[in-house]
Amino acid sequence: MKHRTFFWFIFPSALAMILFIALPVVSVFIQSLHVEHEQVLRTVENCGPFGCTQETVVDRAATQELRDAKPLGRFAGLSNYTDRNHLAFSELGVMWDRSDSFADFTRRAMTLPFWRAMAFTLTFTFVVTPLVLTLGLAIALGVNSLPRVFRGPTIFVSLLPMIVTPLIGSLILFWMVDSRGVLGAGLQTLMNDPTLSLKASPTLTWIMLMVYGVWSSAPFAFIVFYAGLQTVPEEPLEAAMIDGANRWQRIRYVVIPHLMPLAVFITLMQLMDNFRVFEPIVGFQAQAQATSLSYNIFNYLRGDAAQFGAAATTSMLTILGVVVLLTPVLIRTWRDFNRKRS
């Protein structure tokens, strides 16, 4: 295809992506270098029957004027990145000196918003992804051994948790595990503890969010693996059987190697999607116990006094995280592409 034709074909799509993905990233970067204006203060003298007092008040009009004139705020350089709400190096240093053990240090570090969110996001990503792969494979193997008539309905039901809006899915589960909901009440009876509430303990909240993550993503792994199972070649399986391999060995040495490329694909998708975990925290109202990077950004932007600087800084750090996460994949694809060309 000629360069010119290519350009015109790709133009609308590229324009949309430049305007609404690439430029916003630039805008985020610029915003991350600024902080909100401080309120303009004014000293007024109040004189009453008992004498005069000096009082400092906020000059709303002047503050508003300043904000309207320079909506970005004042330039702050990289200070947003190093402040307490983000990387917080100096706070971490102090904590490191003061804490007597590593556990103590982690406990203290969990009070810093960015690191708290980072801890949950990474835990979520790296716990949910392998579980999704395992559960998906197990279901796929199970469904594959079912009579054909049952497969369609099973797939239909399985698609539900995945396709449903994340916020809705998490709400549905949240209402059930509520201490007055069916699962919450069931757990209380099971544990024999009428005060048990999943919302109260950080550990239980984390587990609950991850259970949601697995519930909503396992169908994806299942469907992809199931499709892969349909294409497992017959000969190696038979050869393995003749060689005396039992069912487990056949799965381990024939089926799983065949599914490996699919596993890589699912892992890539899951890493990307789990790293931006956001809606479940809103749905489960779990922000007191668990926050993610995306949730932090949402929280900064919400409300009347949106903190654009802080939101933008967290966004930049999140994008950095995504790039680090994707680097191995990008390098691999680059090699494949070159191999295909040569």
């Binding site: 916003p24 931006r276 950004i297």
Partner: peptide, 28 residues
């Protein structure tokens, strides 16, 4: 290839990070 790779990175970006880039210009 590069366009597809850039698209992949864009695909991975959390939507809320982009939203934080939109708000201020859109208000303006």
């Amino acid at each position: 290839f590069w366009l597809l790779m850039i698209a992949l990175v864009f695909r991975a970006m959390p939507h809320i990070t982009l939203v934080s880039g939109y708000l201020l210009p859109f208000f303006q």
